[in-house]
Design a binder for these strands. Structure first.
Lengths: 235, 235
DNA sequence: TGCGAGGATTGATAATTATCACTTTTGAAA
DNA sequence: TTTCAAAAGTGATAATTATCAATCCTCGCA
């Protein structure tokens, strides 16, 4: 079931996949000349905040979290990147250290493109430049959304929203018919929602009671997206 | 007094001014070919969320807030842009509506550059493209900072941080020696901090008691930046 | 120079969220 | 299967933040 008529998915999604999808052959061969694909395990770290970047990453299969850890060790997940998305390009383009860290949420296949190839392809291709400008500008809108929502919504609303957003990301891993299963630890979910685990768990219990979701072991199964969207109370 | 050794100013500032500062003559003449400069009054609106952009704005003198308003009418200030900064380019580059609104915080002089000239200059100038990519990527880091700080810090910490950030923005309007005066309504300050006016006022009273700040009428005068930075408790 | 509307402040209290302590459940390994 | 460490869930309570109701100040304007 698509929810585009009920919920502005794109307002919460970077759509970084569109940067390289259907790139002309010449561009793609320049970019992927030295691309190395590798298998990663759940929990593996692609890059860490504060380090200088050597290249960018392409998530061919799997899912990753972009997050920051504050001085108290508290983690905040900024974004969940899924299949087809690029990560790690901000630091390269800003000519700066990584502003966040990135770890895999499940076993994944990830391509690595060296910094030089990425920059060279940008120099060669106005199309790639344009696409990057477009995606980065769109990301601004997504993050502005996030800031507003974070500062003005309750834990209950934020949890409902994140479940709706996660549902979109976990869709490709699920049976096309049938409800979407989200396999994310309560710890990660609360770091995404930006609240303590206990609070998020209590909200989940409430949602379960209201039959908006159900659980199977540790998995969260979304039963009523429309209901969750209503609770998220966007506008 | 510079606080760069105490506080990472750049982590909280878009630095969009660097996009057009010292642009080569040819680029600048293309970009500014039809630029119109105008005087605006405090409170005037440059653009509104949801509208399609016709061009970008250059704040020659003054200050503007970028903000979003949620369905309850609650305003969240995303960013305060000051002298020398560009605003409104995200929507043009994303080929989308404005993700936020922008209003002037004081009487200002603002230049308007038509969409077409901006895009044409980007097409012509790899340098401008590069600078935009760099600035947009840097903005990502700033917003990621904001999200983390918003979700993990108390109103007291957030208020201290914003005062430090605002001090930098209000510096140019103040006597080079002497402390910096911030002329911002408590309403705007609390919309920036992301809390109710009353809470922010109480925090200000506490800061005043501790002689970190003082007030003169409605103006806030920063007396002890180092103390505020300590309270902001960054890392 | 005094007036008044809007902005700033304070106090009291309700609602939300964080934290700590503990029990139950889960799922992977023996 | 059985076991057990880690994850999930629950309850009680503290801390923070929001909200409502007043009152006090400021500053532009008559």
């Amino acid at each position: 079931m698509s929810i585009r008529h009920l919920f502005p998915v794109q307002s919460w999604d970077f759509q970084s996949g569109s940067i390289i999808s259907n790139l002309p052959p010449k561009e793609w061969s320049l970019l992927s000349a030295h691309m190395v694909e590798a298998q990663y395990n759940k929990g593996d770290i692609l890059f860490k905040e504060g380090f200088y970047p050597n290249g960018i990453f392409f998530i061919r299969k799997g899912m990753a979290k972009k997050y920051r850890i504050n001085k108290d060790g508290q983690e905040q997940i900024i974004y969940v990147a899924s299949q087809g998305e690029l990560v790690g390009y901000h630091a390269v383009l800003a000519e700066d250290r990584y502003p966040d860290s990135c770890a895999l949420l499940e076993d994944s296949i990830v391509g690595f493109i060296p910094r030089e190839d990425f920059l060279k392809t940008i120099d060669y291709s106005p199309l790639l430049s344009k696409r990057l400008l477009k995606t980065l500008s769109h990301e601004f809108a997504v993050l502005a959304n996030n800031i507003t929502f974070f500062s003005q919504s309750s834990v209950r609303e934020r949890t409902a929203l994140q479940l709706v957003v996660l549902r979109e990301k976990y869709k490709p891993m699920n049976d096309k018919n049938g409800p979407v299963e989200i396999t994310m630890s309560r710890e990660n979910l609360s770091n995404l929602v930006g609240s303590a685990r206990e609070n998020v768990v209590r909200v989940l219990s409430e949602f379960k009671e209201a039959e908006l979701i159900t659980t199977n072991g540790r998995k969260i199964i979304i039963l009523d997206v429309a209901g969750l969207i209503k609770i998220a109370n966007l506008r």
